[in-house]
Amino acid sequence: MSFQYLVRRTGTFLLVIVLAVSVNFLIPRLIPGDPIEDRLTQLSATSSGGASIDIAATAAAYRERFGLDKSLVEQYLNYWWDILHLDFGYSLANYPETVGASISAALPWTLGLVGTSTLIAFVIGSLLGGLLAWPRVPRALRGFIPLLMVISAIPYFLLGIILIYVLVIVARAFPAGGAYTFGSTLRFDLNGIADVLRHATLPAASIILAGIGSWALSMRGMMISVLGEDFIKLAHAKGLKQRRIFLWYGMRNSLLPQLTSLALVLGYVVSGSILVEVIFSYPGIGYKLYQAIQSKDYFVVQGIVLILVVSIGFALYVMDLIYPLIDPRIRYQQA
């Protein structure tokens, strides 16, 4: 890997981060109205007895407390300072919990559930798609193609609801929600892990089932065009074994575009799979984001969006760095 390539990609990544942070800073400030005054008005209107508080004075005090009385440039610099110290402020809904603590409590659950199931869906889907395009595969397997199209057309949250109905309400085989049995404490022993896995099965299944279809279909399309290439013909002529041609000629070349999509999707993993997490009340980032939006918890929303943008940028950055190892043709390209 050339040094120049590394510098260029790193530069692009840093630029994306700077832009993301700036936009994230600006957008809430472009919204008309003052969040503190709004909040206080709301509080005084709902509080019983109508205790009279001086809204204007209180708001000014809070503004000073949060540094909102300073100029936009100063606020912007402060924002950078806080972010570099991983300080995303306080959660409005669950004050005095910090946004950082709130996110770091939810993130492991999401990474474990959504990350793992995305990878599983990718591996199974790509393999299946490759096999579906391979001419020497039993015809019966082709029957999967329409089935995959149907499954990939069903939204994963709908799939989740169906799974809940069949396996939780009718068969009573799995818990309906949560990440572990309610009321129990999380332990790292065999029972604890089994309990976590049991709770993760259904949400994971809905993500995997919904993912397999689209991974398989796109892989199948790539594989069909790769199998038409001249180097496949020569591979047969060389007397190579079928398995080698399938894996090293077919799959290896078809996987390249799939991996780009995988990097993007993995970047999105951090945002969680909002609907699945909501349906299964799974305490991940997606559920957290949903709650935050419901309770107008701006700082949490802002924090999650920032982490999302940064992680997508990071996933693509990592992909850019390892792509030359996967596809030697990329190495010297000046892009």
Binding site: E229, D230, F231, K233, L234, A235, H236, A237, K238, G239, L240, K241, W248, Y249, R252, N253, L256, I326, D327, P328, R329
Partner: peptide, 24 residues
């Protein structure tokens, strides 16, 4: 037949440009 290909009966392909696996 697979064992015979290239061992006793080999082939120079038509499309020189795309006959080699690009990632190997």
């Amino acid at each position: 037949m697979r064992r015979i290909r290239f061992d006793r009966l080999s082939m120079v392909p038509q499309g020189a440009m795309n006959s080699l696996n690009p990632v190997m």
